[in-house]
Simulated assay, not measured.
Amino acid sequence: MSNSVVALTPRRHLSDRQAQTVQRLVDAAVEELRSVGYDGLTVRNVAKRAGVAPATAYNYFASREHLVTEVFWRRLESLPETRLDGRRSASSRVASTLSEMALLVADEPELAAACTVAMLSNDADVKVLRDRIGLTWRHRLQRALGDAADPAVLTTLEFAVSGAMLQAGMGHLDYADLPERLARTADLVVR
């Protein structure tokens, strides 16, 4: 089995009730981040906010990093597929795709900062989610580039979006500036 297939295999099947519990925890994590920030975030407090026993929360999320990365993953997965207009240039299509990905958490500074820290964790569950996030970014960029996507261009664009989001998450760039900066990057790289 290829690495990409392994990375996309779910850890376990969730019943409807379990899936609802996980969703409550994810929603509560966002509310808790808005309330106390990443430094004050604990799985125990998220569980309390969600009305879930702490042991149950830890059954699904091994750490706060895992929980926050799950929030980002779910947001990324909920983005609709980019509508690709063949009349637009590849550079324009890529710029739109990069912008959608970069602005995913832009309106929520607490969540954005938390995602930056959480996704750099060595936690094994975070690594699985990072792999899924990376594969999703690759899929979206490949689609925007078209069938003849140069692997070197694709890799460069992946570095650009992850680097831009890291810079914004660290406070070195403003999320609002990312679409313009990534559009310039797409123009330079995709030519």
Rank of each mutant, 00 (worst) to 15 (best):
V26K: 02
D131M: 09
E32V: 01
F159D: 02
L188I: 13
Y60S: 14
D27A: 11
A113F: 04
E158N: 01
S63M: 08
E70A: 10
L120E: 12
S4L: 01
V36F: 03
A50D: 08
V71T: 06
S91P: 04
A186W: 01
A95Y: 07
R132A: 09
D85I: 07
R44H: 12
A168H: 06
E81F: 03
A90D: 02
L33R: 08
A102M: 12
L173A: 13
D174H: 12
V22S: 05
H139D: 15
L84V: 15
V46S: 05
L188H: 04
R11T: 15
P109I: 14
M119G: 13
Q167L: 15
Q20A: 15
P10H: 15
L8E: 14
V43L: 09
S121K: 05
E32I: 02
E180A: 11
N59D: 06
N45E: 12
A124F: 00
S78V: 03
A28H: 12
R138P: 02
L104W: 07
E31Y: 00
V36T: 10
R12T: 13
A47Y: 01
V161W: 07
R49M: 13
P179D: 03
D131R: 14
L178A: 08
L188C: 07
D16I: 09
T185P: 01
G146Q: 01
L8N: 13
L33F: 04
A113I: 00
L79P: 06
S121E: 02
S35L: 12
L25E: 03
P54E: 15
S15K: 06
S162D: 13
T155P: 01
L178E: 04
L129M: 14
A53V: 10
R74W: 04
L129G: 09
V189W: 00
A7D: 03
R138V: 05
C115T: 11
S35H: 12
V6D: 05
V5I: 08
T82Q: 15
S78R: 14
Y58L: 07
N45V: 13
A112Q: 10
M101W: 00
S92T: 06
Q20W: 01
Q167H: 05
S89A: 14
L182H: 03
G51M: 15
H172G: 13
S15V: 08
H13N: 11
V161M: 07
L129T: 06
T69A: 10
A124K: 01
L178S: 06
V26N: 00
T97P: 00
A164L: 09
V68A: 10
P109D: 14
A29M: 09
